[in-house]
């Protein structure tokens, strides 16, 4: 079971909700993924016309809503957005994203840490989106975030775990859940992250723009289960060295 803050989850696959061709296809993908945590960009939420809104596709009795602050350029903007969302009834779980660059949507480490510190104090359950920086991950844990969400590669890039070495260190040192976020373009990428010991993964674009989002969501679900199971059983580290045929310590016998 995955435990984040005071909640436990069976599923280790989080879904992002942007970029889907329709609310209906989003709904089907959420069901097929058997996900329990769903992130929504607050910028897309429109409380003035609920019937058109993206929130209409998300049954909050089934899924934990994880609103995100994507598009915020500074800590101040992210904090403002988070407060408003909570006041509007979006709950106190938050995926903190401070992404000042609209092109690669890479997170600003300095502003993210600042915002996390403020929001944790205000009672938010904060899951920050970060670059794969082990020291930053520790700093965020120190200020009380409920998890860290390092990226595998830039959002929407489908490049998989380009940051593998740093992710390994983050997982090794973590005392809070590590959720691999962004860049996972294929189920094999998700399986790889889970085999490495990530606690969960978040997938969006690869499912949203697939020719059949529900089927792709199912494929990711299976990959996450497979990867986790292998991790729990313990994988043998691949080795390139042959064992020496004449033992080095034979003289001791």
């Amino acid at each position: 079971m995955l435990k984040i803050a005071d909640k436990t989850f069976t599923s280790r696959l989080f879904l992002g909700t942007g970029k889907f061709p329709s609310n209906q296809s989003l709904k089907e993908a959420l069901a097929a993924a058997e996900t329990e945590i769903v992130t929504v960009a607050l910028r897309r939420v429109d409380l003035n016309s609920p019937q058109e809104d993206i929130l209409a596709a998300i049954d909050r009795s089934k899924y934990l809503l994880l609103p995100n602050t994507s598009g915020a350029r500074t800590a101040e903007e992210a904090v403002r957005l988070a407060r408003l969302a909570r006041a509007g009834g979006a709950g106190n779980w938050l995926k903190l994203e401070v992404t000042p660059d609209p092109n690669y949507l890479l997170p600003d480490p300095i502003e993210t840490l600042k915002a996390a510190e403020i929001l944790v104090k205000e009672g938010f359950i904060v899951l920050p989106y970060i670059n794969a920086d082990p020291v930053l991950a520790k700093r965020l844990a120190d200020v009380g975030t409920a998890a860290v969400m390092p990226l595998g590669s830039p959002i929407g890039s489908h490049q998989g775990l380009k940051t593998k070495e740093a992710i390994t260190i983050i997982i090794e040192q973590a005392n809070i859940p590590v959720v691999l976020d962004a860049g996972l373009g294929a189920p094999s990428h998700a399986a790889e992250a889970m085999e490495m010991g990530a606690d969960a993964v978040l997938v969006n674009t690869a499912i949203a723009i697939a020719s059949n989002p529900a089927k792709m969501a199912e494929a990711f679900k299976l990959a996450v289960i497979a990867g986790r199971q292998a991790y729990e059983l313990g994988l043998k580290t691949p080795t390139t060295q042959a064992s020496a045929s004449s033992p080095l310590t034979g003289f001791l016998r």
Partner: peptide, 19 residues
């Protein structure tokens, strides 16, 4: 737009970003 397999988006920004 829906017929082409795309989702019409009405809101993708928020006043709150700006102080």
């Amino acid at each position: 737009i829906v017929k082409k397999g795309y989702e019409p988006v009405y809101k993708d920004w928020d006043r709150v970003y700006i102080e």
